[in-house]
Design a protein around this nucleic acid. Structure first.
Length: 465
DNA sequence: TTAGGGTTAG
């Protein structure tokens, strides 16, 4: 029989700095590698027993689970899981939800299995929401939605998690409708995290600035805390919707502009005013004493790629590593590969892929392969094509199959062309034709667009979505 | 700042 977790939170006194575990807890919070976290945890176990009637009882376990999930080691996690079972710590919802989250990132199937074993007394809404998040990341949209529908007292996190699920499955219109359903049919108010999700969805859908203004209005009317993320998301949304003027108005009104606000503004500026102007803004940011982060360099490298500024891009990459000591992520490599590839420097692009410290993904390969097709270089494409065919290709990247098939045809490798076609049939890939969309009032028109004079768009062959 | 949801490359 598990001891019941304390029903009431402990009094502030028991959380005071005088608790013998306080310093160890602080050290554990800062621990990033699992071995040091586990060492501190063992020391803590001597000071804090699981029966300790304070929040200290479960906190060490929660804190140790963070570095443990980052280490991505299933054996280590199941070892700690066994300890949690032995010491009855899993009876605390805080511990159960943290463990479930760890499993969901490493093995969704094991997460599901663990969830089924959590007793009702422990399975509160947080635990259920973690499970929903796990389903959203690992399962299909319909299963996640069915689980969501079964949650009795949903809170804003439940709705927010489900909304993210729609967007991550590229179901933007349904996601926005889902958001409207929450605001119209429940008493729940969207908080700033949910609004960041909505704004990001609007931005990626390229909706008219009206949607951004509507969300902006919601933020103002409901007096929602104007956090850094919310400010950044608004700037992004406005600039992606083509209203750099509104974006900069938000930017200028942010009281403490930090690196994220600047980066969002640099992105928008690169698109609307060009790379030179974006680089100028970066210099202005540096002069104002704000340090760039990895996302700032992603924005700059991407801007250089669009403008074909190969040397400038390479300089930024070096600056990022040498001056700012930032480790290049897969996004930076992606930008650099694209930069070289678009400029026709296919060998340089390929060298970057070879030198990467992580496994290149389908986005990176498709940059290279698209350029190989454009510059009619079949030789460099070879290894990439074989590699990509062994990888999982998401539905939105299904164009990769056609690209590879074209490249093989270009090289006269007809047996490989047939192999790719067969693979497409086996994997049930539908050919998705290129399309564009615009939004007019409440309707989205998917169509081919022909530019007539500047902004004058004449649409034909449209299908109302 | 304290178990759960949110931002970057084609």
């Amino acid at each position: 029989m598990l001891p019941a977790p304390p029903r009431r939170p402990c009094s502030p006194m028991s959380l005071s700095h005088h608790h013998p575990a306080f310093e160890l807890i602080a050290a554990l919070r800062g621990a990033s590698c699992p071995s040091s976290a586990l060492r501190l945890y063992s020391l803590l176990r001597i000071r804090v027993r699981p029966t300790d009637p304070s929040r200290f009882a479960w906190r060490p376990a929660v804190l140790v689970l963070k570095p443990l999930s980052a280490a991505a080691s299933l054996p280590l996690l199941s070892h700690f899981h066994a300890h949690l079972l032995r010491s009855n710590l899993l009876a605390y919802p805080h511990v159960a939800s943290s463990l479930l989250r760890c499993y969901s990132l490493l093995s969704p199937a094991l997460a599901h299995h663990l969830f089924d074993q959590i007793p009702p007394s422990t399975c509160n809404l947080v635990v259920v929401n973690v499970m929903l998040g796990s389903l959203c990341r690992s399962s299909d949209l319909a299963s996640a939605r069915a689980f969501f529908d079964g949650i009795p007292d949903k809170d804003v996190v439940s709705w927010s998690t489900m909304l993210t699920c729609y967007f991550s499955h590229s179901r933007l219109a349904e996601g926005l409708a889902f958001f409207r359903t929450m605001t119209f049919t429940t008493q729940l108010a969207a908080d700033y995290v949910m609004l960041v999700t909505v704004l990001t969805g609007c931005a990626s859908a390229g909706l008219l600035p009206v949607s951004c203004r509507a969300i902006h209005g919601y933020v103002v009317r409901r007096e929602i805390t104007f956090t850094m993320h919310l400010g950044t998301a608004l700037i992004n949304c406005y600039s992606k919707a083509g209203r750099l003027d509104y974006a900069s108005r938000v930017f200028l009104r942010v009281p403490l502009r930090n690196v994220m606000h600047w980066t969002a503004m640099i992105c928008g500026t690169a698109v609307h005013l060009g790379s030179e102007e974006a680089i100028r803004l970066f210099e202005e940011m540096s002069l104002s004493g704000v340090q760039p982060n990895e996302m700032t360099f992603t924005a700059l490298l991407s801007a250089c790629g669009h403008a074909g500024l190969v040397d400038q891009g390479r300089l930024f990459f070096e600056l990022m590593v040498d001056k700012y000591g930032l480790e290049p992520t897969i996004h930076h490599y992606g930008c650099i590969v694209d930069l070289y590839a678009k400029a026709g420097k296919l060998e340089d692009a390929y060298k970057v892929i070879k030198a990467m410290r992580m496994e290149p993904n389908t986005i990176i390969w498709s940059s290279l392969l698209a350029a190989c097709k454009k510059f009619k270089n079949f030789d460099i494409a070879g290894e990439g094509m074989e590699k990509v065919l062994t990888m999982e290709i998401s539905e939105e990247n299904s164009g990769l199959y056609a690209l590879i098939s074209d490249l093989y045809a270009m090289g006269g490798r007809w047996e490989a062309v047939i192999r790719v076609r067969r693979l497409m049939e086996e994997r049930n890939v539908r050919k998705i034709r290129g399309s564009s969309s615009i939004k007019v009032g409440e309707l989205t028109y998917w169509k081919k667009i022909r530019m007539v004079h500047g902004d004058d768009l004449r649409a034909y062959e449209y299908i109302i979505n």
